[in-house]
Amino acid sequence: MQRIINFILEYRNAFLYVVLTLISLIITVNSHSYHQSKYFNSAKWLTGSIYNVSNGIRSYFALRQENELLHQENEQLRLALFNLETSVSADTSDGTAKYTVTKAQVIKNSYATPRNYITIDKGSKDGITQDMGVITPLGILGIVENTSASYATVQSVLNTKSNINAKIKNTDHFGSLIWDAKRYNVVQLVDIPRSASLNVGDTITTGAMSSIFPENIPIGVIREYTLNQNQSSYTIAVSLFNDMTNIKNTYVVKNKDREEILELQKKTADVE
């Protein structure tokens, strides 16, 4: 016994190193395969507040540009509103609206790693929960992964774990949107059947299969496409509409029917 203790004491640094490495590896590998760690993420109070202060200073330098972008978006929305055939009332308080939208600002963005997360300045206090969709005026951004009281982390579309249902605009050929970690402006759409007719420049939008995003939110345009190895489906490179390097104002979308859809799907799966 004495000799074992002596042995451990003699090599205590090596032991400490191995133990610390193991702890880190467990944290890392767990979140490689599954969700981002619930306890260690940048939505927490300390990290969130520091990013918020830094963002407060930083955002002053882009106010004019942001204003211009918001103005442009308003213009587009007005155009769509005036040309709608049926009139819509702006009042959504009667409970019939299927989606609710919450505005949020990006306080930390990243796009240079294989697993990118974005931090936004709205959290569970504002009704944000896991698995809500996040969009910008130009297109989709990602899915809410973790929340704290006032902040939330968003799994960006530029994340190798991201998998979003998408389709070719005006058709019903759908596939999965993934990312190969190579370029921050190009994502991949896989599993589009060979029978689909494709053209470079076609628009890709979110599909109806997702209970997270509304259908027809723009994603990007086809950059190039190839048949996959067994010649049965296409792998499409999609140029994103969003400039992922420059994102400030976002909207968090909540599908009010999501719980109902998930419950129904679970029931159906249980029966089989």
Binding site: Y17, L20, T28, F40, S42, K44, S110, R115
Partner: peptide, 26 residues
């Protein structure tokens, strides 16, 4: 070793990289 672990882990918390900086640091 402990201080390095903590340094790496703090940076991990901020950059959402799990414990990668922590491993590199120790």
């Amino acid at each position: 070793l402990l201080v390095s672990f903590f340094l790496g882990f703090m940076i991990d918390l901020f950059s959402d990289t799990m414990a990668l900086h922590a491993i590199a640091a120790i």
